[in-house]
Each structure stands twice: as C-alpha cells, then as structure tokens.
Computed example of a mutant assay.
Amino acid sequence: MTSPFRALGLALACSALALSIQSAHAEESAAKFSRESLLNKRVALESNDIDARVIRVRFPKGFKTPLHTHEGPGPRYVLKGKLKVEDDGQSHTYVPGDVFWETGKEMTVENIGRGEAEIIIFEMAAAKK
C-alpha cells in the first residue's frame, strides 16, 4: 500500500509537471509565425529582362546625398535611423520598419537622426545587355 503522504507527493509532482508543460506550450504558441505585408505596388517595367539588386546603404549622422537618380525604382526598407527623403518633388520622413517606394526620378536622402542610418534598397532596372 502507498502512504497518503507519498500519494499526495506524487499528485503534487504530477500537477507541477502538468503546469510546466502548459506553461511551455503557452510560450511556444505565443511565438507563432507571422506574415505582414509592408508594401504592395503594381509596377510596369520597360523591359521583360530585369536586373534585381539588393543593396545595403549606411548614412553617417548628418549626411545628405546630392541630387541623384537610380537605375530603377523599387522599395526601400529602413533598418535604423531617421531619414528625410525628397523624391520627385515630395518630401517624407522615415524611421526603422518603414518601407517606401523610390520612383527612380531625381531625389535626395538626408540622415536627420541622432546617429547612423541604414536602409536596404531593392532595385529593379532593365537588364544591361
């Protein structure tokens, strides 16, 4: 026969194990896969053959690019910092997590934050033959 204290100890141990498993399952289900659309834009490109590039750009504090263009339009993703972008006559400010569409027309980018800024450029341009 099992003593009442031993049975109580076994019941408590089983309860603690069950609570531990529930807690682990709750933590596991809280960290689920997620998917979020950051930009959706229909694009008409002038060529069927496209060169796609992914470029990391770092801007020192206070840096401003001269007026320039890129070979192709595309989305830009801000990793860190605060950027003022003037593109095709319009001005916007972007911070980490923001995605914006660069037109490929004349533009400037200025780091107006307190430290280094960084973006990822996804560029789509007609393939060079």
Rank of each mutant, 00 (worst) to 15 (best):
V95Q: 15
C14D: 11
V54P: 03
L19I: 05
V54H: 03
S37N: 11
S3Q: 03
V95C: 11
P73H: 12
L79P: 06
V54R: 05
E106H: 07
S47G: 13
G104N: 11
Q90S: 11
V99W: 11
A18F: 14
V99D: 06
M107Q: 15
N48R: 11
M1I: 06
P73N: 14
P73T: 12
G113F: 07
R58L: 07
L83P: 00
Y77F: 02
I119Q: 00
E46T: 09
D87P: 01
E118P: 04
T65F: 02
I55G: 00
L8F: 05
L79R: 13
E116P: 01
D98F: 05
E46G: 10
F122N: 14
A26Y: 14
M1S: 07
K82D: 08
P4M: 09
A52T: 12
N111L: 01
Q22V: 08
T2Q: 13
V57K: 00
A18M: 13
G72C: 12
T2M: 10
I112A: 03
R6H: 11
G97L: 03
L79K: 13
G113M: 09
E102N: 09
L17Y: 02
I55R: 00
T93Y: 12
S15P: 03
D49T: 14
G115W: 04
S23E: 10
T69W: 06
H68M: 09
G9M: 06
L8A: 06
P75C: 01
A7W: 06
K105Q: 15
K129N: 03
F59Q: 03
S34Q: 13
V78L: 11
A11H: 04
K105N: 15
A18P: 05
A13K: 02
M107E: 11
K61H: 07
R53C: 00
A11R: 01
A125W: 05
W101F: 07
G89D: 09
A11Y: 00
I119K: 04
V57E: 09
I119R: 04
L38H: 03
K105E: 15
G104F: 12
R35H: 13
Q90P: 01
S29E: 15
N111M: 00
G113W: 08
Q22C: 07
V85D: 10
R42F: 05
K41Y: 12
K129A: 02
S20R: 08
E110W: 04
L39Q: 01
E71L: 14
R56A: 08
E123Y: 02
D87V: 00
G9I: 02
E27G: 13
P66C: 04
R53V: 02
A16F: 10
L39I: 05
N111K: 01
G113Y: 09
G62W: 13
E123C: 05
P75Q: 01
V99H: 05
S47V: 12
V57G: 04
A31M: 10
I121P: 00
A13Y: 03
K80Q: 09
V57H: 00
G62C: 15
K80L: 02
E86C: 04
G113E: 10
V95R: 12
I119M: 05
G72D: 13
T2V: 11
A126G: 09
V99R: 03
G97S: 10
E28A: 15
V99E: 06
T93K: 02
S47R: 12
P60R: 01
V95F: 10
G113D: 11
G81E: 10
H25S: 12
L8Q: 02
E28T: 15
I119P: 00
